[in-house]
């Protein structure tokens, strides 16, 4: 309860609205996109996933339909070569990052990119 309160408080401080359902696992929150973008870079996610989560050495996160729950548990204890963040990132901040990733618009259709259509 204390933890939930603290989280909610942190969320309020960060301008995040975190709907918390008592007794249930956290649902998809409404995070602060701006802060999420900042934290995505500051926490070092960009070196593998690129600035807008488009992937690189790491997986593509943008347009990747994973739940907040899966997202949180993967960041904390990932598989493969991704470093485990454990509890380094508070859940409210993860909510912001999640919100940022979700806010990234879809990529253009390859057919609409003339440079790609020149490739035979």
């Amino acid at each position: 309860m204390k933890r939930i309160f603290a989280l909610a408080l942190l969320g309020t401080l960060l301008g995040v609205s975190v709907p918390v359902l008592q007794g249930q696992a956290p649902q998809r929150p409404t995070g602060n996109v701006e802060n999420g973008k900042k934290q995505f870079a500051a926490r070092g996610c960009v070196s593998c996933h690129s600035y807008s989560g488009q992937g690189g050495a790491g997986a593509r996160l943008a347009q990747n339909p994973i739940t907040f729950q899966t997202f949180v548990s993967y960041v904390r204890k990932p598989k493969g070569t991704m470093p485990p963040f454990g509890n380094q990132i508070p859940e409210a901040e993860l909510a912001d990052i999640y919100a940022y990733i979700k806010s990234v618009p879809p990529s253009p259709d390859p057919k609409t990119i003339p440079l790609l259509n020149q490739i035979d």
Partner: peptide, 12 residues
Amino acid sequence: RVRATYGWDDSP
């Protein structure tokens, strides 16, 4: 081809 579209208009 599809992968190349990811972040097509991004800056950096």
